[in-house]
Design a protein around this nucleic acid. Sequence first.
DNA 1: TATGAATGAGGATTCATTCAT
DNA 2: CATGAATGAATCCTCATTCAT
Lengths: 210, 210, 210, 210
Amino acid sequence: MPKVTEGHRESRRQAILDAAQDVFLGKGYQLATVDDIATKSGFSVGALYRYFPTKSDIMLTLLEERLSRGPELLRRLTSDRETPWESLARCVDIFVSALRVRHPSTGRLLLVAWGETLQDGTVRQGLQRRFGGLIEYLASLVRQGVEAGDFRRDADATAVAAILVSLADGVTLYWSVGTPDVYLHDMRTVTLQMLKAYLKPPAAREEPSV
Amino acid sequence: MPKVTEGHRESRRQAILDAAQDVFLGKGYQLATVDDIATKSGFSVGALYRYFPTKSDIMLTLLEERLSRGPELLRRLTSDRETPWESLARCVDIFVSALRVRHPSTGRLLLVAWGETLQDGTVRQGLQRRFGGLIEYLASLVRQGVEAGDFRRDADATAVAAILVSLADGVTLYWSVGTPDVYLHDMRTVTLQMLKAYLKPPAAREEPSV
Amino acid sequence: MPKVTEGHRESRRQAILDAAQDVFLGKGYQLATVDDIATKSGFSVGALYRYFPTKSDIMLTLLEERLSRGPELLRRLTSDRETPWESLARCVDIFVSALRVRHPSTGRLLLVAWGETLQDGTVRQGLQRRFGGLIEYLASLVRQGVEAGDFRRDADATAVAAILVSLADGVTLYWSVGTPDVYLHDMRTVTLQMLKAYLKPPAAREEPSV
Amino acid sequence: MPKVTEGHRESRRQAILDAAQDVFLGKGYQLATVDDIATKSGFSVGALYRYFPTKSDIMLTLLEERLSRGPELLRRLTSDRETPWESLARCVDIFVSALRVRHPSTGRLLLVAWGETLQDGTVRQGLQRRFGGLIEYLASLVRQGVEAGDFRRDADATAVAAILVSLADGVTLYWSVGTPDVYLHDMRTVTLQMLKAYLKPPAAREEPSV
DNA sequence: TATGAATGAGGATTCATTCAT
DNA sequence: CATGAATGAATCCTCATTCAT
């Protein structure tokens, strides 16, 4: 029988992760010190080490728990009874609002993580998993639209999905160095226009690809 | 009256930058040590400091000289006597082939730089300048197309440009953790299709203006 | 709620200062390395930095705590119910015995500090404060003697004080490169004779005023 | 037959010494770099090493040639046909004006040298020689006065000389951290008064020493 | 179990000295 | 002879991790 309930332990673990996220976002992974995280979280350094074996594990956990969930999240937020097109459009909106309003820091965490990507195989795998998951889901939406006869028949589902995900992360980068909100809104509009123009061409006219 | 020719000095400077780029790509900025760069370049640590006052300056120079030039490069490679559409398509191709063939490491350097963005204002400015330059150029191409009656009249030049640049950087990210070449090629194709579908909608293509 | 008592911490701080004093005296400030001090004190380098933020601060603290207190010390050791002349004579004796017996190294520390004077404004201020304090106290003794009609009426209190302090420091210098004890004793005797001859000239001693 | 005349070589050597003195005074010995001296003197680093084998030798030479000469200098400036008292007073004046006007920097050089004293035996010896020489000369003046029946018969020549030299160097210290000129002048006056009061007591009255 | 003091390897930078040109 | 680029040992300081209390 543990002295503290498991729930209590978990909530302290999350408090550490919250503090760590703040600190990593503020100074980057390498420049953030364990002391910073301890101070921010209100724990002692020693205590931190009872929850995570190394500094690196804190970052890894953050990635695993807070970034890799993107795919499920999208899935949960969209797969109601919308048309594929509505779902796609919703994904774009979810992304934009997440960046702007809801979790602006999560987007930046991605960047910080990226710095580590080049060094750490585990981080890299976490990111690849996230990419794969997102793409797979978006591609499935496109395929649904094609099958429903709603999208052009020769639409390249995977490529479209990859473009959307890349665009999303590219925007995150761009945004992190200072894109104004106005751009963000216009980019959303034009992205949807381009997507629609490609997936749902005006008439029967099938353009030969470039 | 310098003992060594200016050209010689410059070539050694470039050798240091080359070594630094390699090392930064391999370990990231923070983890790369000045000793690493010295060893890789074949110079002594002391010699390095005759060319760059601090480690940070090496990175900054790399950014300035090897990333910030993107805008000029595109301009030089495209603005012949092509139509705006051809130029835009060319930009996409230049980017893809640069990523794949010509300077695979330069793309990744961008990522490493980004890690520093969050800490270092100077780096951030360098990146903003690069973003601004690229967007401005691409937007000007779109505007030319609009003026020439070749693109839809209500095309949002800036948003399109921002999307292309973000997409490019997102792809770079994506690619750096392992996008296969096949994806890259398909993404290029679909990107151009989407772009065309948006800029040159079937209807607009028949009657250029009123 | 500190883990260790404040007293314990202070004693370790003093141990570091002791070690530092030894090392500074042995090699001078610039040549003394932080490692030297660590080794001498039995602490690790890292531990040192928990007590003093920089090497320079160790020296500054030494100055502040072990040199700047000269004025108070003199004041405490003399101002009983002696005549001003007795107090002055006592100061000279205190100085001589301090140099010879009690804190021979403190005197030399002064010299090392001086070397830094030329570079470091903070050290300079510490020394000026010490000078000022000593002179002020000695001058007050002289003024008391004048007011009591014990010393010549036109005695220049400040100049006398400055001379005594300068002499003391000059002797410290001299002594640090090897004045034998015998000189020291003779200098004390003659200094007092000169002082008396000046302050209490034969004529003045007969009719205190008018 | 050397390419350059010996005189030319010597003048360049002196130029280096001048530059070195400036630099040492400005930053202290340890903080002064060979590059600083090279730059200041207009020579290349390599050239410097053709005149002095090490940085330390430059300082040593400075001491030997510019500080050790004090004794001869005093001798030359005073030993005319003055009375011993006039000569002593002249020494005091020479010192004061040297400090204030003529070679203010030489005095400070002494201080810088002292920092090294603690490390370097050669420097220490140079300083001891200087002390010895000055004391010997001043003591001889006192003895002449005694023999001439001009000074009190029991005057302690060596102690008086040591006091004067110590005072002089102490004043140099004091002055180097910021004694105003006014003090300097008053100290000179009082020093002479004390000296006279001791050496030439008003009447036959022989005071018993303290 | 929690604390935070201590450890010490590691990193950026400097600078006296050498030596190829 | 002169130059000044190159060398690399040495220095100050940081911080992830451990462990006595």
